[in-house]
């Protein structure tokens, strides 16, 4: 009875009582990592700044999932569910970014770093309505669009 075993093992692990110390340690580590990420974030590292911040966030997230959410004591299916959901998040973001990265430049939104067109409207200064678009032609297009 695989399922009975799995349930039993999980129950057994959950029954095993840890001291509160473990939670305190995780809490302190999370706070330290938060300070680290704020510190490195304020350095405004070029290029890999966001990457570093996301790596730190992933470490923090993993700690929360493993210890606060007890994933380290759960088994089989629960871990699989969590893992698979992360894989699909990566899939969604990955394929979408791949599209923007490899697109025909004129198909990207105007004003973006991968487009040769200038922005139509960035929304500031509502009195004039348009401050970002310098091309009369595009402005007109936008007005007919509205």
């Amino acid at each position: 009875m695989a399922i009975a075993n799995e349930s039993h093992q999980e129950e057994h692990n959950m029954q095993e009582h840890h001291g509160a110390g473990r939670y305190v340690v995780i809490w302190v580590v999370l706070l330290v990592l938060t300070l680290v990420t704020v510190f490195t974030g304020r350095m405004h590292l070029p290029d890999f700044g966001l990457l570093l911040a996301l790596v730190i966030a992933s470490v923090k997230g993993t700690l929360v999932a493993l210890y606060f959410m007890h994933l380290s004591e759960h088994r089989g299916a629960n871990r699989l569910v969590f893992g698979v959901s992360i894989v699909f998040v990566v899939l969604l973001i990955g394929f979408t970014l791949m599209d923007f990265g490899t697109r025909f430049r004129l198909a990207n939104p105007p004003g973006s770093q991968y487009s040769d067109l200038q922005a139509v409207d960035i929304g500031a200064n509502p009195a004039e309505g348009r401050t970002g678009g310098h091309q009369q032609q595009i402005k007109q297009q936008h007005e007919t669009h509205e």
């Binding site: 394929f95 979408t96 990207n108 139509v120 409207d121 669009h145």
Partner: peptide
């Protein structure tokens, strides 16, 4: 809100990505 509004830099194709996902 302008999430997919081309005039404000949004991309309707991103809508299609999420929709077809």
């Amino acid at each position: 809100l302008g999430m997919f509004d081309v005039a404000r830099g949004g991309d309707p194709v991103l809508f299609q990505h999420l929709f077809w996902f």
